[in-house]
Amino acid sequence: MKGKIIVNDQVIDWRAGMTVSDVLTVMNYTFKLLVIQINGKNIKRDDWPTATVPEGADVKVIHLMSGG
């Protein structure tokens, strides 16, 4: 997909150098208990600020339950 990535099944705009942390900002994902996978591969929390997301990637940002 040219210029796009998929985040939790939603298509969003991609830009060169986009990091995992950037994706969280774009999606307004502020919850802390997250599992993040890019094309099926887990990305460690320490790597979120630097790990880049390739164009066309399938990104899963799994929010572990809390609440109540």
Binding site: N8, F31, K60, V61, I62, H63, M65, S66, G67, G68
Partner: peptide, 16 residues
């Protein structure tokens, strides 16, 4: 009451 099941993230956000 939410104490039986709280599935909002799993369903609405994660689409799992």
């Amino acid at each position: 009451q939410h104490d039986e099941a709280w599935l909002i993230f799993m369903d609405m956000v994660n689409n799992q």
